[in-house]
Nucleic acid binder design. Structure first.
Lengths: 193, 193
DNA sequence: GTGTGCATGTAAGGAGTTACATGATTGC
DNA sequence: GCAATCATGTAACTCCTTACATGCACAC
């Protein structure tokens, strides 16, 4: 009873397991997103498409990264509205680069109800099969168009300052979905005959 | 105290929310996978790539679908090893077809650590950028090759009996990844100059 | 002055994975 | 006889989302 409770020990970067979400956070800070809110806002028009996140993930992640010594947190209020600005420490930059150079990665996850439907489309009569393919194609087309028209320009705005990979990734997405749309268009044409 | 406890009421298909995993299960039974184990085995070489599942999901899902009246479960032992065979009820077939014809779908989920790395690749020196792109390309190539060499033939085995969509979906995947590989090859060539 | 956006966080719940637990069958 | 596969299920845990809770700033 008189014994002191356990002393809280800040975990070093070495003992902490860093998830891709942690590196997303680190990477976003490096790109200039200073607050948790800003990180989420940028992620929603960029990394969301291959690594979604939410505010309820970002805030605890930031706290963990500060505790691990990879980020520092400064007060940065806007008038009387509280705000915190984060910056990479040297260790944070090193951790980010180490991750970028590592080749081990979490297994790719992909879940698409539309493709799942297509897989089972043999259960339908032909006119309904055609409808299903058309619907899927329209969705794929919309993704491609949205990416090219909205996301690519946002990412290209970073290019003058030497940040080109966000735009490359956006174009890869737009082009790949455009390819898939053409593929489905061919299937559609085949079904129509 | 003398009052009887609540009587367990089996939920009808109408009151039960059916998830894509439920329709995956229904669809697999329709394709001839009779046991939970068999469903998982087939899913692992087909739907896994766009809707992963696990035995710990399949078994409770089967129980729920039986309770909802969409499947019936028969005992089907192999010697003294227990086994259960599932079959679609008429309501089960109707539910599957209704789902296939509906256009509302869960948002597509995609998580890929490799693409996330590419997004942040500006933090690297050029030689390391090139390594990263090469690694990603190799992975994409492997997916395409594996799909074309292993998955497509399995799916094509179903074609003689009139089930062609599994093979179509597999080819869509192989072709789309092949396109992405070429795209990354072009990027690689550009980085090399 | 009001709605939208900026800003930070917590709590509860859901969906899905891995590990646990057990045992029979089949092919080498 | 031994390993891989067939077979069914539960328990614990993790990750992630939605909802909750709060309040300021700015533009119309």
């Amino acid at each position: 009873m008189g014994v002191a409770g356990p002393i809280p020990v800040s975990r070093s970067a070495r003992t902490m397991k860093l998830t891709p979400s942690a590196f997303l956070t680190l990477g976003m800070v490096r790109l200039g997103a200073r607050s948790g809110y800003a990180i989420k806002k940028v992620a929603d028009v960029s990394t969301r498409f291959f690594w979604p996140t939410s505010l309820a993930q970002v805030y605890p992640e930031l706290a963990r990264l500060v505790e691990a010594g990879l980020l520092i947190r400064r007060e940065d209020p806007q008038g009387s509205r509280e705000r915190f600005a984060y910056e990479l420490t040297e260790e944070g930059e090193a951790a980010l680069e180490k991750w970028l150079c590592s080749t081990h990665e979490a297994e790719t996850q992909f879940r698409d109800e539309g493709v799942l439907r297509l897989f089972f489309a043999d259960a339908l009569a032909e006119p309904d099969q055609l409808k299903l393919v058309r619907h899927l194609r329209a969705r794929v087309r919309d993704v491609s168009a949205h990416t090219r028209e909205k996301i690519v320009p946002l990412a290209e705005a970073l290019e003058p300052s030497g940040t080109r990979y966000p735009a490359l990734v956006a174009r890869l997405r737009a082009d790949t979905y455009a390819y898939a749309e053409q593929w489905l268009a061919d299937l559609e044409a085949e079904l129509e005959t």
